[in-house]
Nucleic acid binder design. Structure first.
Lengths: 209, 209, 209, 209
DNA sequence: TATGAATGAGACTTCATTCAT
DNA sequence: GATGAATGAAGTCTCATTCAT
């Protein structure tokens, strides 16, 4: 009890700095995302980001060396999140599903991710233009994850096959669902279905090789 | 008579200027494309474009109301070019080919186009960021062309089917082949094959519905 | 007569742009000098210089790529002026004077220059720190001029002698009179005399080698 | 007794701290000197100085009220050092030397000093720009020392003579030898000789007044 | 006493576009 | 029509110094 109290106090006294920093970094990122979505990266100003995040501009520059770094951090935050989502499909629970169901869920998962993270689009549109290397980094992470999953779906795949197939799947799903997310709901729904069909038949054709 | 003579003279005097104008416009577009690819649209300056194109900045602004218009003009130039390429696949000579051959040629045609026109995607990536409204113009034209072709491959397709399938094909091929064009030759070749497989199986699955 | 009038009109219509530019450049330099003297180079702002010179800041940056360039231009303006002053001592009229009178006038000429150009000090103090190369360039110009004069005073000097002696004279006079110019009048006068004595005896000792 | 013990203990506890402080102050000064030489005073940042000196920035500001104070401390450190060097020339052993030998050694001593302390002039050049008031402190001390020496060389000098002559000698030697130290070895050697000649003849001329 | 995160005024500079010639 | 000097709003980023811990 006493210990807990002490540790609570200790925490109260020690953490603040770090905790406040983290909170500030996150507030900056959240605000930056909103502003990038609203006005685009080029039109956004670091001054406004700092003002809305209620941190002095100097503090912003203590965390991020320049404006680009904010975009990059945002990109990484999203990449990690999406990769986590995809990692789920490496679990036994998923791998035992019929392929059609597996693909259905995979594509739908990505769709849901884009729906729930409207910033992803805005951020990566900018990234593609400004820092293609960073975009690649994000996709590469996904491709690696997918490359690790494929042998579990069909042990006959060679490593080269896995890499190529994973590449195609990640890029195709990523691009199509991303574009779909900007379409009217009905058409978006249709595109999701088509993407599922596209990927399912593609995978099946590889299984029957 | 008098009119004809006058117009002849007028032509004599006007044409050279028009010819020079056209040449200048094209030089501006060529230079702008190179600079956009190299530095990105945002970093490029109208002054540099004019300087490299050896055109006074004031003259540049006589042809293009603003910087965006240059990008837009570039987009149109490309769209027409690629669409011409795709239109070929609406010809009888192509439509009689076996589907696998048809798809093979289609994808390869796009691959060749990107190889020969490295600026195409670079330009459209910028457009996506800078003028999302205009973006679709490029792919949309292709999608329409493809939407017109699909019924000829399978008359059972409803208009909605056609639109959705064309959308998926154009976007998937466009994106995958574009990315492939930035990969090492061996892997690029493999990606082209995979894209063919992806599209072929997708179309076949729709034929057997 | 008519011709003159025409040319006057022509001048009136042709020059303005160039004349206005030159006038502006000079106004910027004059203002910059005053502000550098008053506040020092580091404290001066391009904004203020432009404002006082009544030119838009953008115009200032059309003539000078950056703040340093203004200082450099100022330095060159002065270097040329001082060199002109020294060149006078290569004329026959001066060379026939007795050495003591020659040296007296030389040192006094430099003293007068510093007195009449209070900006020289302020500018070169900054230059010494910020762009030592430019300062050297100025002195080198003077040293060359002096190196060309010395053989006329004593044809026995070897080129190496000339260079070394010119170097010593330019640096010694330049530094001492410069420092003298910042001293109270009476002491300044004394320092000028001492500098004359210093240089005269130095030269005489070389003549009797 | 008790007091002594207490003071002993106190010393035991205080000294180490003082020793550490001194070491830190010196490390800061050493680092600052290096950075001032390399980048100039204006470009140097207190943060970098602290970082390279491995001292927290807050600690730096406990020793030096502001950036200028570091420069000032550096100046004092050097002034004392050079003045010690010059004081030697007030000793009997030196004063009995022939004037030519005396001057030879004096100039050579300064040359050696600059060679061994490349930072001296760099520091004082900065001071001239940044804090002209303080500047003189350095040379002024030398001038005073020299003013005290001159009567011993020639008792006929009036105090005003002494001050003027000392001023000229200190400034001339200081400036010429400093510049010489930045020249290629052969030319530097020549400049040292010329400076000796310059000063010797100057002094001799005063002796024969 | 020691620490170093936080601060924010303000500096420099860019560049799309215009319009007098 | 052609030209290119002129414009000035506004953006990014720095850094000496403080003060809460």
């Amino acid at each position: 009890m006493v210990e807990q109290a002490a540790s609570a106090i200790a925490r109260k006294w020690r953490k603040p700095k770090q905790a406040r920093s983290l909170e500030r970094v996150n507030r900056i990122l959240d605000v930056a995302e909103a502003i990038f979505i609203e006005q685009g990266y080029a039109a956004a100003t670091t001054k406004e980001i700092a003002a809305v995040a209620e941190v002095p501009i100097g503090t912003l520059y203590q965390f991020f060396p320049d404006k680009e770094a904010i975009l990059q951090a945002l990109a990484e935050r999203y990449s990690d999140l999406l990769d986590q989502q995809v990692q789920v499909f490496a679990t036994e629970a998923m791998l035992v599903l019929p392929l059609s169901e597996y693909v259905r869920r995979l594509v739908e998962g990505v769709d849901t991710f884009f729906l729930e993270n409207p910033g992803y689009r805005a951020v990566f549109v900018e990234i593609t233009t400004t820092m293609p290397e960073t975009e690649e980094a994000g996709d590469q992470q996904l491709i690696q994850t997918m490359t690790g999953i494929l042998p579990k779906l069909n042990s006959a795949f060679s490593p080269e096959d896995c890499e190529a197939i994973a590449f195609v799947l990640v890029k195709a799903i990523g691009n199509l669902i991303w574009i779909a997310s900007g379409q009217p709901p009905a058409f978006r729904q249709r595109l999701v279905q088509e993407t599922q069909k596209l990927c399912l038949n593609y995978l099946q054709s590889h299984f029957s090789d």
